[in-house]
Nucleic acid binder design. Structure first.
Lengths: 244, 244
DNA sequence: AAGTGGTCTAGACCACTAG
DNA sequence: TAGTGGTCTAGACCACTTT
């Protein structure tokens, strides 16, 4: 690249941003192959090594995957359940069972102070609230609330959510936005009344300990866009996080 | 295809392994500077770019850190508490308070089937069991059990653990081994009797929900070496995992 | 000014996949 | 055999820190 008077950001970083935008714009669909590293280098006026560095970061971010000898591909959107897996406690190498998701409803509300702070919104900002139920072999194991800034996602309604396989897929289809997990918090607490009913915890012992998960997700650039709160019953399962 | 020739490890990978070993052998202490990328390249007969790639992976693994214009340094051992932080629920950008660790004791036992499987040991293999208590501003918030293969760590005793700031530091000082987290599991359950006593949960309501964390740690090469089980009281705190 | 990490290039070769 | 990702080199220059 000959004319590049101002370099605020390294070239590979600019290329990464550009590819991020083009993926978001739908230039390549899930599992589509990108142009080869050499073709991209040609097109962008950079060297193969520099393009490769940009691609490597996108692979690390989970947006792309590579197959030696075949090409570089757009990764499928992350599953609605998230990165954690439900496994039998103590076992780590098991394959996770598939979870079924049930859309419960969408409503409007206002941000709590915690939510407003985490999502960088003003106090009591309007939010969309999406509720989902998770079943494992038919048995309810978790309830989910996703809170999204209403201003950003005006037009997201039950039609989009019922038809899609979850909030993340709906956001990608409707707004072309892909979320990634920014941080997570875990707590143990007694299941609140309303969630107990949804999860079918009944009987003389009306209380059960539940794993509370709060997750902030955001754009690939790190702008927070979702506060998700989940209650998991874990007397028969454990929530697993794998690491590289 | 039928014939599977030995695939040579990439050079940067060999360099990484060698540096790993030299760090483990104590050639450079914590916060010591390594030779510059160019000097290492010279010494190892590789190019600066290749050395840089090896160093970058070690930085990503948390073993080294870099400072532009100054050098590449050996990172301090990870804290005994681990990567997760205890924070006020709902707040994500807070700095964590320091936790005080109390060594409770070390004993010998045998691996459960789960532990044996996770640590790749034979059934009922002998284990060392290290127990610790965590206090936050003097208040007990968590109890910890670390299980280590007795055969690997013969000679680790109370003297080493009392004097050090934790299991990880003791392993590094005594055996020159650095552990990294391989995977984690979370569950919510009612605090068992023994742990209730240690954490001072008493009164008419003898039961409290607790966050159960099971973590497998291992060598930098991925060999599992520690099963750690922790019970956290989280009615006033949350367990936070940050992501890149 | 000297030394370090950080970026970028052009070219080369290897390993793997597919037609 | 052609195309792709994966590795490696030598050299250049930039950005930052220390002396």
């Amino acid at each position: 690249m000959t004319d590049r008077p101002l370099r605020r950001q390294p070239l590979y970083s600019q290329i990464k941003q550009q590819l991020l935008r083009r993926i978001g714009d739908g230039e390549w669909q899930e599992n589509d192959a990108l142009p080869s590293e050499w073709d991209l280098a040609d097109e962008l006026g950079a060297s193969q090594g520099t393009v490769r560095k940009a691609l490597s970061e996108l692979v690390a971010d989970g947006l792309l995957y590579r197959a030696q000898g075949r090409g570089t591909f757009v990764a499928p959107a992350p599953s609605e359940w998230g990165e954690g897996l439900l496994l039998t406690p103590g076992l780590f190498n098991e394959q996770p069972d598939d979870l079924a998701r049930e859309f419960l409803g969408i409503s409007r509300g206002n941000a709590s102070d915690d939510m407003a702070a985490a999502l960088q919104l003003r106090r009591a900002a309007p939010l969309l609230r999406v509720r989902q139920l998770w079943r494992w072999h038919g048995i309810p194991v978790a309830v989910d609330e996703a809170f999204l800034p209403a201003d950003e996602f005006e037009g997201l309604d039950a039609r989009w959510l019922r038809g899609s396989s979850g909030v993340y897929q709906a956001l990608q289809q409707r707004f072309g936005i892909r979320l990634k997990v920014l941080c997570e918090q875990f707590r143990a607490l007694m299941l609140p009344r309303e969630e107990s009913a949804l999860l079918g915890v009944t009987g003389m012992v009306a209380e059960a300990p539940a794993l509370s998960l709060i997750r902030i997700s955001g754009s690939m650039e790190g702008v927070p866009l979702e506060w998700r709160q989940r209650y998991c019953l874990t007397h028969n399962w454990a929530y697993t996080a794998r690491r590289a």
